[in-house]
Amino acid sequence: MERSFRAAPLSLVESLPNADISYAVADVTNKEEVQAVADLAVEKYGRVDVLYNNAGVMPTALLSERRFDEWRQMLDINIMGVLNGIAAVLPIMKKQQSGQIIATDSVAGHVVYPTSAVYCGTKFAVRAIMEGLRQEERENNIRSTMISPGAVDTELYNTINDPEAQEMLRKNAQTEGYGLSPGDVADAVVYAIGTPETVSISEILIRPTKQPI
């Protein structure tokens, strides 16, 4: 797993030979590794314009199954990962008096449904954190944006340990009209980043047209 994960950024770099890209691999639950990514950006480019907190996991199960390890994993990655990213760049952005922090939330940050109570809880928490960030840092010209997608055809479903649930959700996301492509979400992110500094897009809620919730 570690090998394939580390190969992913390199593959992206190789697919864009004419782009100036620097990258570092970091575990979002490790605040020192996250800080090192922010420091690399400052060292190479002199500033940090945008941070996108996008890491997340989505194990699903009933609360009665008492999956303590999965609960802890979701709290550490989905919530602490976002906080570690915010903490790494806030001093830089405050010094710049500009910057934008983006986090992937979810439709699950607006509704709760069976087998996903803890996952939904982490996404509700991200909404609260990002709104608090907006209120606290607006005078420093720091923008905060949440991207809240519905079903998206990504590797997120690999984090579901129940094979049947994993396959069902994956098939739904791959069905036209019931799942978004990564490009659909990327377009929303590009739009939010492209707005003027005087405009703060607090949230973009983006669903597949046929998604019922």
Rank of each mutant, 00 (worst) to 15 (best):
R127M: 10
T29Y: 01
V42N: 08
V34R: 04
I204P: 02
I129W: 06
E167P: 02
T122H: 08
K210D: 08
P9C: 05
N141S: 06
L63C: 01
V190I: 12
V126S: 08
I129V: 15
K31G: 02
H110G: 02
R47M: 12
G177Y: 07
T175R: 11
A173P: 08
A165V: 07
I101W: 04
S116Q: 15
G85A: 14
K95T: 13
R207C: 04
V152G: 11
T175Y: 07
T60F: 04
V189Y: 09
M58T: 05
V48R: 13
A36Q: 06
R143N: 03
N161A: 14
G179R: 05
M130S: 04
E131I: 08
G109S: 09
E139Y: 00
E2M: 11
L75M: 14
P9M: 08
A188F: 02
Q73A: 07
R3L: 01
V111S: 01
K171W: 06
F68A: 08
Q174N: 12
E43F: 12
L10C: 08
Y45N: 09
I201L: 12
R66S: 04
L133G: 15
R170H: 01
D39G: 05
P59S: 05
R67Y: 00
L10I: 07
Q166F: 00
A108F: 09
P114G: 05
D187L: 09
R138T: 14
E139R: 13
S4R: 12
I92V: 15
V126D: 03
P182Q: 12
L12G: 00
E137L: 13
G56T: 07
N78R: 10
L51F: 06
G56K: 03
A125I: 04
A125D: 01
N54S: 03
A19D: 09
K44L: 13
V48Y: 05
R134K: 13
D49C: 08
F124W: 15
S106D: 00
N54W: 01
P163C: 11
A87Q: 15
Y157G: 08
L180R: 08
L180F: 01
I213C: 05
V25Y: 03
L180T: 04
A38M: 09
V25M: 07
G46F: 14
Q73T: 06
G46W: 09
R127D: 01
D20N: 14
N78F: 09
Y23H: 06
Y52K: 11
T122I: 05
P182V: 11
E164Q: 15
P114F: 11
V50I: 13
E136M: 10
A192D: 03
G183F: 07
N18K: 11
V199P: 02
V50K: 00
A186Q: 10
R207T: 12
V111I: 15
I129Y: 03
I86W: 01
N54M: 01
G179I: 03
V89P: 00
A125E: 01
E131T: 06
V185H: 07
S181G: 00
D20E: 13
T154A: 11
E139I: 04
S144R: 09
I160H: 08
A24R: 15
N78V: 05
P9S: 09
V89S: 03
D39N: 15
T145P: 04
